[in-house]
Amino acid sequence: MAPSEPSKPAAADSPLVEAFLEKRESLVLFLAARTRSMAMAEDLAQDLYLKIAAMQPGTEIRSPGSLLYRMASNLLVDHVRSAQRARRRDSQWRDDTRTSVGGEEVVEEPSAEQLIVNRERARQLAEAVAGLPPQMGRAFRLNKLEGLTQMQTAEAMGISRKMVEQHIHAAVKNLTRRLGS
């Protein structure tokens, strides 16, 4: 649990805060499906907590669970949108604005050892993706590695969005069986 969250709600009478604390793990795991790391999902959950803690205590809430997931979904929409923007910025950054100081590129490189480990694991991951059936592998690459949304992936492949989702479902199952611990 993040340090700034009270282990006991300060406003013990807020059913929303209580519901949040009770559902916190599920909310984080819900958010994490769309973030690039668990840490980012924790951050979003923290944002969610700050939002509900700031709400008027007297507000009548019929279904705290629905409201929490509605707010979490809205947070995700914003997050995914800005992540896609950042991704584009990133590749632009890599491609045309490498800062150089005295002729040396200023890019933080991982240590040589880290690089070898990552490369070996990346090779394993790539091999597993290459081993997927062609359409499934293509859907996975476009959606997961190229960062296209499900709709964009569907458009690129000329198939339905539902089909893309089925490909991703099967791909995750296949990859987890081969690579997951």
């Binding site: 929490l68 979904s73 989702e165 991703i168 479902h169 995750v172």
Partner: peptide, 28 residues
């Protein structure tokens, strides 16, 4: 594991919303 993969795929929908969240929590 099959269901988990299905959920991970379903939560990638562009219009994921509260109903998905509630159903996901129930399953989880």
């Amino acid at each position: 594991m099959d269901e988990a993969a299905g959920w991970l795929a379903r939560l990638q929908r562009d219009d994921v919303a509260e109903a998905d969240g509630l159903a996901f929590e129930a399953w989880l």
